[in-house]
Computed example of a mutant assay.
Amino acid sequence: MVNESSVLFEKQGHIGILTLNRPPANAYHLEMLNCFNTSLRQAINDPEINAIIVDSSSEKFFCAGADIKVFEANTTEENAKMISQARENMALIENCEKVVIAVINGHCLGGGLEIALACDIRFAAKHQYLIGLPEINLGLIPGNGGSQRLTRLIGVSNAIQMLSTGDSISAQEAYRMGLINQLFDSEELMPAAVALASKLGQGPALAIAATKKAVYGGALLPMAEALELEKRLVDTLYDTQDGQEGFRAFVEKRPAQFTGK
């Protein structure tokens, strides 16, 4: 495990694990965001890593978002740098070709929820803690994509209610709305995420990358253009080694052995 101060990076086989590690609440400042960016790029650029997990070392918090005391003490220019880095991190998560899983086991608020929203999949613990975007209580709105990604997950009406009131919800309510993919008992949460990441790590990396491009890119296009995007993406996969291996394995009735080529 590599200790990047407020972010820990660990490689487990084909999985890269980024652990938020700034007690007590993982409230971030610029240094932490920079550390996160460094570790995330390390995982993305490692050809042996095919899936990424983002979790927390805290038993009570996934992430409380920006450190408000730091934010209040900063100059406008300093805060602009922090916001810019946060936005870059969210885009890096969403645009990378590897599936990123958020593991939420405690309060997930503000910029912390925005990190989770940028991830592709969100697993969460069943016990009681808060999930929300309370920026309205500061006279603000989310600034790192929260309003847009939240709306795409839970719909306009639910998003407006959460955003305009700043009220937080439980993990159970987040699951009901579609914000959370699956709920687990705390002791089962990380093993479930690792099991999924391991499965993804054995999958066809090129097809998984194409899946992310199709889903995120197509969601912003009219249907005819989205279907054309899908066509272009799948056409690139037929002659890949993994594509040929997938057909052979199906015919031979055996598990496919994908290599990411």
Results as ranks from 00 to 15, higher is better:
1 M>C: 10
2 V>F: 15
3 N>K: 15
3 N>I: 14
5 S>V: 11
6 S>L: 08
9 F>I: 07
10 E>K: 15
10 E>R: 15
11 K>M: 09
12 Q>V: 12
13 G>E: 11
15 I>M: 12
27 A>L: 01
27 A>S: 08
28 Y>C: 02
28 Y>S: 04
30 L>V: 06
32 M>V: 03
35 C>P: 01
35 C>I: 00
36 F>G: 04
37 N>S: 13
39 S>M: 09
40 L>D: 00
44 I>R: 07
44 I>W: 06
46 D>F: 09
47 P>S: 06
47 P>E: 05
49 I>R: 08
49 I>P: 10
52 I>W: 11
58 S>Y: 12
59 E>A: 12
62 F>R: 08
62 F>C: 01
62 F>E: 03
65 G>C: 00
66 A>M: 03
70 V>Y: 10
72 E>S: 05
72 E>N: 09
72 E>D: 12
73 A>L: 03
76 T>Y: 12
77 E>R: 11
78 E>Y: 09
79 N>L: 01
80 A>Q: 13
83 I>L: 14
87 R>H: 10
88 E>N: 13
89 N>H: 07
93 I>A: 07
100 V>F: 11
105 N>P: 04
106 G>W: 11
106 G>H: 13
109 L>I: 07
111 G>A: 03
111 G>L: 02
115 I>L: 15
115 I>D: 04
115 I>W: 13
118 A>M: 06
119 C>Y: 12
121 I>G: 11
124 A>H: 10
125 A>V: 05
126 K>R: 15
131 I>M: 14
132 G>Q: 10
133 L>W: 04
136 I>F: 03
136 I>L: 02
138 L>I: 00
138 L>E: 06
138 L>V: 00
143 G>V: 00
146 G>E: 00
146 G>L: 00
148 Q>S: 09
148 Q>F: 04
155 G>P: 14
155 G>H: 12
155 G>M: 06
156 V>Q: 15
158 N>Q: 15
159 A>L: 02
160 I>K: 14
162 M>L: 15
163 L>D: 07
166 G>P: 12
168 S>M: 13
170 S>A: 06
171 A>H: 07
175 Y>E: 08
176 R>L: 12
177 M>Y: 14
177 M>A: 06
180 I>P: 11
184 F>T: 03
186 S>W: 13
186 S>A: 11
196 L>F: 15
199 K>W: 15
200 L>M: 09
202 Q>R: 13
208 I>R: 06
209 A>L: 00
210 A>C: 03
210 A>T: 00
213 K>G: 00
214 A>C: 07
216 Y>A: 02
217 G>D: 01
218 G>S: 02
219 A>H: 07
220 L>E: 12
221 L>E: 05
221 L>V: 05
221 L>T: 05
221 L>G: 03
222 P>A: 04
225 E>W: 03
230 E>I: 14
232 R>Q: 04
233 L>K: 01
236 T>D: 10
237 L>A: 06
238 Y>R: 02
238 Y>L: 06
240 T>G: 10
241 Q>Y: 04
244 Q>D: 02
245 E>N: 05
247 F>V: 15
251 V>W: 09
251 V>E: 11
252 E>S: 10
254 R>E: 08
256 A>F: 10
260 G>T: 01
261 K>A: 12
